[in-house]
Nucleic acid binder design. Sequence first.
DNA 1: AGGGTCAAGAGGAACC
DNA 2: GGTTCCTCTTGACCCT
Length: 221
Amino acid sequence: MEESDHEECNTGLCLGLGGGHVAKKEKKQKLVNKPLMACFDLAFEISPKGEAMNIYNNHSNIKKGERLSLERQQNYPNVTYSTDSENNNNNNNNNNDSRKKLRLTKEQSTILENTFKLHNTLNPVQKQSLADQLNLKTRQIEVWFQNRRARTKLKQTEVDYELLKKHCQNLSDENRRLKKELQELKLVQSPLCPQRTPSKPKMCSSCDHKLFKLNELENNN
DNA sequence: AGGGTCAAGAGGAACC
DNA sequence: GGTTCCTCTTGACCCT
């Protein structure tokens, strides 16, 4: 965990928890009565001039999420929004407690996905260079990879589950068939019914020899 | 409205 | 003891 990730967040709300948890207990205490994930308490875009723009206030006729994605994708595709606290305390007085969700741009997602395909974990150097490249924090890269691994694992679990379910179904079918077959064999061998000719039992590949033995038995009688 | 998605918080385990 | 990862959870946003 890179403590520096959150150094600039001077609201005291964003304490850089998560991986690392430096002095967890201390931070936990600080967090008492504070909103979670307050690092993204206000959404800003960085304008081409380098100004922090509160995009929520500027476009009142568009819905929240639409504003975020529209602005980000169309106007400033290479910048991600950040928080009030990260952008020099603008509007610190306007510190509402609702956390705003970061949405990665298409480009950022693509690059992250491609990197993930190459290696699903990153060393600190790779993490830093990716963060620089995408204009994100190393913590965000770390979190993305963590969540991505979790998604991969979940998907794999679902696939495994389906395979096991199928396999289980096959075994059940096989079990049912063998039981039926056993029933037939018992009938054939019963002294009460010596001349009964059974329908040809369908043997599983592993016990074809049973049929042979059965025929032998009948011949001897 | 409600369910899905996903970035991020939180805590514990594993590793060195 | 610090770092990284895993797992579960939370909450914002999106979609229908």
